[in-house]
Amino acid sequence: MTKKTLEYSVKLPSHTDNLELIRTFVAGVAKKVGFQSEDINKIELAVDEACTNVVEHAYKEKENENIDVAIQIDYQKFTVVVTDKGKRFSPADIDIPDMDQYLAELRVGGLGIYLMKTLMDEVQYHTGPDGKNRVKMVKHFLKR
């Protein structure tokens, strides 16, 4: 028997003005599939951070590019994949291993990635042979 997977996706111009639309889309789907507000807020913020990184770093503010935001839902998890065709990103370069130390030093970079990893159950970066960068973020239903 094949388990049913639901898919929702949007494609938008890579501009920070579209972040609110992206949050509304992702939060709407998360709510529809039954997440409570705390998890919806986490998913919304993590996806905002991923898309902000695409606009500001992958595309370096070039506005004529696109961001794809795709959501896949199966019986156990909610997966958001943000895809771009911009500059490749290596998250290890700006890892924040220890938040207390980070704050004590009052550093200011790498917050977005840190938040994504803190808010979601899994975060993976992958650049495919097609040159597209994909950030996959997963929230499990079982951990609600």
Partner: peptide, 19 residues
């Protein structure tokens, strides 16, 4: 109502300057 790292970063820079 909402704040992402774009805003948190500003609070951190302010805290650093004020320190």
């Amino acid at each position: 109502d909402y704040i992402s790292s774009a805003g948190l970063r500003i609070f951190l820079i302010a805290a650093k300057k004020l320190k």
